[in-house]
């Protein structure tokens, strides 16, 4: 999954292909029923729902972009701004609360000025705080990184360790501060 493709580089073709293959409403009711899922496809492809994708969906389904924005802002799962390099779903369900997720939520707010849906200032991480349960309470408090890796039994310290790794990885990738000093 591509994460945080910048708005200028959005390639709408993959989205259009999916829409043409699988989103063929028979009537206006069907169109309305399909909006949210079409947006989920876009978020899956681009890591968020860019404006251009919204317009493509609106055009394909024959609905207004207005209506789509109304839904995107209602459902907390959707990101409408370009996310950072990594995306984290931080579980704040009851098991995770009992295990201490409130401390992580507070830490993110105090240390990084990050609330749900926001990105750290250096662009490393976008955090979505999930109020429902992620369903892996055995690992509470838990977060899912980039939609596949789980980080369980999180503490503020282990979270900071993770941040450190993510930051150094991105520095290595961009060549800054690289270990190879030849």
């Amino acid at each position: 999954m591509a994460h945080g493709a910048p708005a200028s580089e959005i390639d709408l073709q993959p989205l259009r292909t999916i829409l043409e293959d699988r989103y063929n409403p028979e009537n206006y009711q069907d169109s309305l029923e399909l909006i949210v899922q079409a947006c989920q496809e876009a978020q899956h492809l681009y890591g968020y729902v860019p404006k251009a994708a919204t317009e493509a969906i609106a055009e394909h389904l024959g609905v207004s972009t207005n209506r789509i924005f109304g839904l995107l802002t209602f459902y907390a799962d959707f990101l409408t701004d370009e996310p950072g390099e990594h995306t984290m779903l931080l579980c704040h369900g009851t098991a995770c609360y009992v295990g201490g997720s409130q401390k992580l939520v507070d830490h993110l707010d105090l240390r990084y000025d990050v609330t749900s849906g926001k990105t750290t200032r250096d662009g490393t991480l976008t955090v979505q705080i999930v109020n429902g349960c992620l369903g892996v309470c055995d690992l509470a408090p838990v977060a899912q990184l980039d939609h596949h890796d789980y980080c369980g039994h999180l503490t503020v310290e282990s979270f900071e360790g993770l941040m450190e790794t993510l930051r150094s990885e991105s520095k290595a990738a961009t060549g800054e501060d690289s270990d190879e000093t030849d």
Binding site: S31, I35, A76, D77
Partner: peptide, 20 residues
């Protein structure tokens, strides 16, 4: 499906959610 809104589990809300 729809995501990230607990209220959509309420019967009438769920139906509106289905209706886009």
């Amino acid at each position: 499906s729809g995501g990230g809104a607990y209220i959509c589990g309420e019967g009438s809300a769920l139906m509106y959610a289905i209706m886009g």
